[in-house]
């Protein structure tokens, strides 16, 4: 995945950032931090093609029809469905056989310590559990890029470390991991770090 000359200007005319250059190869993981309002989430949306940049471009070469697995701050769930259903969603969309999708989802749920909530509807779980549910979905999928937006902001220290370690571990499966976070303390030392400034990414 490469981003070259990437910039975004809000409809109000304010430029959030510009000249973002980024190259990520399979097995790379990067954590992007920065003050509130600098556009970290926006950068993630641009990288994941949920938003169109006002400058520059994002290129990705992947042989997967849908390369992105998202962790989106608890917004990105089917609240009436169970944790297991949500965790299997990417695989379901990718046409993975239901039994395989279920198995992968169960493994991810177990890894995040949510086994007892597997059949609970997400409208009935806490904010932290909801956040881990979105992580479980990303982990259960086989998509080559994981884009995580503040994956630990509602988690206690232990769970935050667990989530970061699990995401970092995905590097070993040749996946690209991009994490936007304030919680740099929970980051494993092996993850690249960068700060988003109005003038671009500073590593």
């Amino acid at each position: 995945m490469t981003a070259s000359g990437l910039g975004y200007r809000l409809p109000t005319g304010r430029t959030l950032f510009e000249h973002v250059e980024l190259r990520l190869d399979p097995g790379d993981a990067i954590a992007i931090s920065g003050p509130s309002g600098t556009g970290k989430s926006t950068l993630l949306w641009l990288l994941g093609n949920l938003l169109t940049p006002t400058a520059g471009r994002v290129d990705i070469s992947a042989d997967h029809p849908q390369p992105y697995a998202w962790v989106l701050q608890g917004l990105n769930v089917l609240s009436a469905r169970t944790l297991l259903d949500n965790s299997a969603l990417c695989n379901t969309i990718d046409g993975v056989p239901p039994r395989v999708a279920r198995t992968r989802a169960t493994e991810a749920v177990d890894a995040l310590g949510l086994t007892s909530l597997a059949r609970t509807r997400l409208r009935n779980v806490s904010g932290g559990e909801l956040q881990r549910a979105t992580v479980a979905r990303a982990l259960a999928s086989t998509r080559p890029v994981i884009l995580a937006d503040e994956p630990t902001n509602q988690l206690d220290r232990d769970n935050a470390r667990l989530v970061m370690e699990l995401l970092d571990n995905e590097r070993h499966h040749n996946r690209v991991v991009v994490i936007v976070t304030h919680d740099t303390a929970a980051l494993p030392s092996t993850i690249r770090r960068a700060e988003l400034t109005p003038g671009g990414l500073v590593e």
């Binding site: 992105y68 998202w70 989106l72 089917l78 969603l89 969309i93 998509r143």
Partner: peptide, 11 residues
Amino acid sequence: NDLAVYAANGL
């Protein structure tokens, strides 16, 4: 919202 979840996840 739910349909947007599907869209965000690549459907």
